[in-house]
């Protein structure tokens, strides 16, 4: 979902308005390449959606806001190609919670699915009214694994789906981590792919295969719109 006001000017300037796009449609969701107004989403043929919340352990300033917006829009456009609408949930600033200060620099251990550290367990317990089938992306200052620092990590406690990321100008890191949470467990060796092991994507936006979209659509976290 994104605001027309944020994107319309660029698209008009480049004559790249998607078919069906009209001024005054308000907040939009892309279904495939087709923009759909949020109010009509429930009646649209877009079959599935996933709700993603952001919670920041860093103070939410302009930089963090811009980071969230950039990552979210990049993910929405990419997932929409597979007819998955990414619906933004809440954005919460957790930086004033003194109990969480120690988690701004997070120990993620091995960062392997199904294995979490005490730091991760504590962090992911802060869901704050997020629905059971909704994802939370936590933003921290640093993530330290057993061997080095990580940019993102999708290992999460059972029943608390989500991922952790650090602020970065690599645009598809959140999409990559959400892809893991939605069932894409295998990394790609091709730099054109979203699930490339490395954040140095080429030929952007990166690609997701039909099989990968299918896997995400089968996830219990993608729900009918």
């Amino acid at each position: 979902m994104f605001s027309l006001r944020d994107t319309l000017a660029n698209r008009l300037a480049n004559h790249r308005l998607p078919k069906g796009y009209r001024i005054g449609m308000g907040i939009m969701v892309l279904c495939g390449r087709r923009p759909v107004g949020i109010t009509t989403l429930r009646n649209s043929p877009c079959p599935e959606s996933v709700i993603v919340h952001f919670k920041s352990l860093l103070p939410i300033d302009n930089n963090i806001n811009q980071f969230i917006k950039t990552q979210l829009i990049a993910m929405q456009r990419l997932f929409a190609e597979g007819k998955i609408a990414v619906l933004p949930g809440t954005t919460e600033d957790l930086s004033n919670n003194p109990n969480l200060q120690i988690l701004q620099n997070l120990n993620v251990g091995q960062c392997i699915s199904g294995t979490t550290t005490q730091d991760q367990n504590t962090l992911f317990s802060n869901r704050n009214d997020v629905g059971d089938n909704e994802l939370v992306v936590y933003i921290v200052a640093t993530m330290i694994s057993n061997v080095t620092s990580a940019i993102g990590c999708a290992a999460h406690p059972a029943g608390r789906p989500g991922a952790v990321v650090v602020q970065t100008n690599r645009r598809w890191v959140v999409a990559h981590e959400v892809g893991h949470v939605l069932g894409l467990r295998v990394h790609s060796g091709k730099s054109d792919d979203l699930m490339f092991v490395n954040a140095g994507w080429t030929n952007v936006p990166p690609d997701l295969s039909d099989n990968e979209y299918s896997t995400m659509l089968k996830s219990s976290l993608t729900r009918p719109c």
Partner: peptide, 15 residues
């Protein structure tokens, strides 16, 4: 070198 060190969820092989 920058590319080599850009793994998202790195393991020790990155080095």
């Amino acid at each position: 070198l920058r590319n080599q060190l850009s793994a998202i969820e790195p393991d020790i092989d990155m080095f």
